[in-house]
């Protein structure tokens, strides 16, 4: 059997340690060892975005990212966005525009939209569509997500 190795990384701001095997991916690690289920494996191919996590400031597909590779990294998950019990502007906007149905893809969308607005505080429709190409919603809430992004952009400017 292949031995586990110990990795150290920062998870939502706190230093943590985990034992991982080479074939474990980040989604499994977060779910099994940290009880964080906001990142989920759906398509398993980096196409749907349900597994989105932020590694060293960049969005990645947790289902295609070996857990070993986050040794020493800063990892941020959707669970950090409402720190202190306050929803982020993006989360508020998703609720106010009803930009979700079943909610399974929603954490991934919320994280990607947060990244999008960090990069483009006032995005055009085209920028939104291109940035979110890799986030699919089988309930097809795309028009509502478009509205949520615009509302969130406004909220962030006001904040």
């Amino acid at each position: 059997m292949i031995a586990a190795r110990t990795i150290n990384f920062t998870l939502n701001g706190a230093p943590v340690t985990a034992d991982v095997k080479p074939h474990h991916n980040v989604v499994e690690l977060l779910q099994a060892q940290f009880g964080l289920t906001g990142a989920r494996e759906t398509c398993g191919q980096g196409l749907c975005g349900c597994c989105t996590v932020i590694v060293n400031g960049l969005a990645v597909s947790g289902c295609l990212y070996l857990a070993s590779f986050i040794d020493g990294a800063e990892v941020v998950t959707v669970e950090s966005l409402d720190a202190g019990g306050k929803l982020s502007p993006v989360q508020e906007a998703f609720i106010e525009t009803s930009a979700f149905q079943c909610g399974f893809c929603t954490p991934g969308f919320v994280l990607m939209v947060t990244q999008l607005l960090d990069e483009h505080p006032d995005p055009s429709d085209d920028q939104i569509k291109h940035y979110l190409t890799g986030n699919l919603c089988r309930c097809a809430t795309y028009p509502e997500v478009m509205q949520a992004v615009k509302l969130a952009a406004k909220k962030r400017k006001g904040a």
Partner: peptide, 13 residues
Amino acid sequence: PRLEGRDKVTGRA
């Protein structure tokens, strides 16, 4: 607004 919205947008549903 949907009752379960908060749980869904925070990934806690």
